[in-house]
Design a protein around this nucleic acid. Structure first.
Lengths: 94, 94
DNA sequence: GGGGTATTTAGAAAATTTTCTAAATACCTT
DNA sequence: AAGGTATTTAGAAAATTTTCTAAATACCCC
């Protein structure tokens, strides 16, 4: 259950903002960093957490590491929330 | 945006387990506490966090305070995750 | 009102998380 | 290989979160 890790990863506002940035497409660590008032080391830390939670993955190209969203884990989270909401079936109409 | 609070609230395993307990129906603080190896004060702390995040609400009856799930906020979380996943439309088929 | 049970609050200790600086890797380009 | 840019790692400081003990509220019942 790396599930707990995913929730932890999503609990930080900086990390959620990183995910939103990546929604538009892959970005390098540097690109991501330039959106925040933090050192590159801190951004790297957050990227590591997101990576461990399987929320992003990286692909290396030239001298850069590009990060992009991995949405598959989000399904699990949605499912967990659904079951909490509605007994079991998701997308329930009342 | 108490939205951030909701994510924080969901990030702790104890709190998620409390929500799962409440899925079956309302429970008093004491009932909830008896499922965990922690003091009542700690449980009370977690209940406060869940309450502030609007994930539960309480109703007083006799000498007890009963807690129950409030699923309305979960919709927002689902929506946020959906937009992350799929451009915008939720419940997307590929 | 008085004693009893249920729960919360206050304050401190312990644990975890976030951030920084400095140094280390990694890889590209010439 | 050498110098340069991009990113990560290590280790410590700062901030936040989780937990506990002890005391305070709150409400019930006799």
């Amino acid at each position: 259950m790396a599930f707990a890790e995913t929730f932890k990863a999503l609990s930080d506002p900086v990390r959620r903002e990183i995910l939103e940035l990546l929604k538009k497409g892959p970005l390098s660590a540097g690109d991501i960093g330039s959106h925040f008032d933090m050192t590159g080391a801190t951004i790297s830390y957050h990227l590591k957490i997101l990576k461990q939670a399987d929320l992003i993955y990286e692909s290396r190209e030239k001298n850069f590491i590009y990060y992009q969203l991995n949405t598959t884990v989000l399904e699990e989270i949605m499912l967990w929330i659904s079951t909490l909401k509605g007994g079991d079936l998701n997308d329930e109409r009342e």
